[in-house]
């Protein structure tokens, strides 16, 4: 058990193991994404009320789910860095932030595009969209804080504190925005609500959610590898790697 943690703290080991994970995880992710998209776009019928525009659900919901989970990944990695001073956790936290922001952006843009045929307007201050917008602000805040520090070790710790504060706040923000929306809900706008989703539509959706989790993991590992190399630029194993990569052309 402890030897695993010690290995986790070793950059060359992590670089090698993440490489061998990516070798099968990346193709598997791309395959799952392709199958999920084809399934959702081609092999399901239209939704009764929204017609074909509902097919955006297969990217909107997975992106939103994984974007939220990504914030927790980032905050927990930050906590590990603060408590056990684990450098790898700092690398993971820094690497998770841009991916989470990108997924939140996807969720927001697809939500806006979905809103046009469904509600007749690009933007509705709906509880879920507003919460996603605030999540994007939280991600961008972490990225901005990291950039502002010249001392990157301090930047990692400061971002860890900020993302932990954000993690405590996310349930409060979500609940209060939910409640705020139920108070102000305009009569003309009715979302499909909690209507039960047909299993023929649910299965491709579940596949897409799994594929987006895998996508997040792949991107996280790729980012961590690039970051690891840059942080370890002075060490021999990175220099060897650079020379080997250069001789390959």
């Amino acid at each position: 058990m402890w030897s695993f943690f010690h290995k986790l703290g070793s950059p060359p080991w992590l670089y090698a193991i993440s490489g061998s994970i990516l070798r099968w995880l990346l193709p598997a992710t791309l395959l799952a994404l392709a199958v999920g998209l084809a399934w959702g776009l081609l092999f399901t019928g239209p939704e009764a009320r929204q017609g074909n525009s509902y097919r955006i659900i297969y990217i909107h919901v997975p992106a939103a789910v994984v974007a939220l989970a990504g914030y927790y990944v980032m905050a927990i990695a930050g906590a590990v860095n603060l408590i056990w001073k684990m450098k790898m956790a700092d690398v993971a936290m820094k690497s998770a932030a841009p991916i989470g922001a990108a997924l939140t952006f996807i969720a927001l843009v697809t939500g806006a595009i979905w809103g046009k045929p469904t509600w007749g307007t690009w933007w509705v201050w709906d509880a879920r969209i507003t919460s996603m917008l605030i999540l994007l602000f939280l991600y961008l805040g972490v990225l901005a804080l990291y950039e502002a520090f010249d001392n990157k070790a301090a930047a990692g710790k400061a971002c860890a504190v900020l993302s932990l504060v954000g993690m405590v706040n996310i349930p409060i923000i979500y609940k209060s925005v939910d409640w705020w929306y139920s108070l102000h809900q305009p009569a003309s706008i009715k979302f499909i609500g909690q209507s039960t989703i047909d299993s023929s539509m649910l299965h491709p959706l579940l596949l897409m959610i799994a594929a987006f989790y895998a996508l997040f993991t792949c991107c996280l590992l790729l980012n961590m590898r690039a970051e690891l190399l840059q942080r370890e630029a002075r060490t021999n194993w990175v220099k060897k790697l650079a020379v080997a990569a250069d001789s390959r052309g």
Binding site: F137, G141, L145, G166, I172, S176, V177
Partner: peptide
């Protein structure tokens, strides 16, 4: 402002 405004919202 960027850091704490989202936390002010509730």
């Amino acid at each position: 402002s960027l850091l704490i405004l989202p936390l002010y919202m509730p």
